[in-house]
């Protein structure tokens, strides 16, 4: 059995008196694509925020580790350290740096894997120059990966929506993660773009061996590409398993469709 790269145990998150997440358990194994689904307001994005350090979970454990490394508990550490450890994310409402070019956006992603500081910047010494060149090269290759190389010098805010989503993925990839968290990557995309996206995500897993945890509403996409699915409703985990298991689970059907008399 492969050890999990992400293991979340009994995580709870309270906002004032409201419990947004209630004892959620979730794990992602190396090389897996795992989907987190659930109706609107189920707490999916809150879950992402909890494991990436934007919120500090009220209780529970978030343990991560590159496969082979010793796992580490990361509750409440700063978001930038989470990224440094190797978990990178995208945002539901795209958060690119709007007035920087596509290439620069990806270059920012390499920040935590590069070192040159103030002295390097000012002296522009050999080490800094070499590193700068590597940053550009690597970022450009990542743009090629998401098929955005022709937009390298276009401002991020001028890209169409679907391309912005792909740019966010490239930017997250630049942080050299072992686990990629995608928050509704297909939202606002047309069917053609969604298919491209699916191929991109599968490619990332297969070529780079990066595990993926994604939140997604497009069921067709989720069912066809995920190894396992976790279902959240009102902050509770109501089901998990393979796509077949989950899609047959009455609790899931109930959460999505509601019981006849409830919803009218």
């Amino acid at each position: 059995m492969v050890s999990p790269v992400l293991n979340v145990q009994d995580i709870c998150m309270d906002f004032g008196g409201i419990r947004a997440l209630d004892e959620v358990n979730l794990d992602v194994k190396a090389g897996e694509i795992v989907a987190l689904i659930g109706p609107n307001g189920a707490g999916k994005t809150t879950f992402f925020n909890c494991i990436t350090g934007i919120y500090k979970p009220t209780s529970g454990d978030v343990v991560v580790g590159r496969s082979g490394d010793s796992p580490r508990r990361i509750n409440g550490i700063k978001p930038n350290l989470v990224t440094e450890i190797g978990m990178a994310r995208t945002f539901q409402n795209i958060r690119l740096f709007p007035s920087m070019t596509a290439l620069e956006n990806v270059m920012i992603g390499t920040h935590c894997r590069t070192k040159s500081g103030i002295w390097g910047a000012i002296s522009h010494n050999r080490k800094a120059r070499v590193e700068e060149q590597e940053i550009i090269e690597r970022s450009y290759h990542l743009l090629e990966l998401v098929h955005l190389e022709e937009y390298a010098n276009e401002l991020a805010c001028n890209l169409p929506y679907g391309k912005q989503r792909r740019l966010e993925i490239a930017r997250a990839m630049a942080t050299d993660p072992f686990l990629l968290l995608l928050d509704e990557p297909a939202a606002g995309m047309n069917p053609h773009e969604t298919i491209e996206l699916k191929e991109l995500v599968l490619g990332i897993r297969d070529v780079y061996g990066i595990s993926i945890l994604l939140i997604e509403h497009d069921m067709k996409m989720v069912m066809s590409m995920s190894d396992r699915i976790f279902v959240l409703d009102y902050g509770r985990l109501i089901s998990h398993g393979t796509p077949q298991e989950v899609s047959g689970d009455p609790a899931v059907i109930k959460a999505y469709l509601g019981e006849g008399d409830d919803d009218v």
Binding site: P79, N80, T83, A88, R95, S99, I108, A174
Partner: peptide, 18 residues
């Protein structure tokens, strides 16, 4: 570049490991 990114979006910046 990190400064500029920070000016544009602090949360995204942190999520990029800055």
């Amino acid at each position: 570049r990190a400064w500029l990114a920070l000016r544009e979006d602090e949360i995204a910046c942190q999520a990029m490991g800055i």
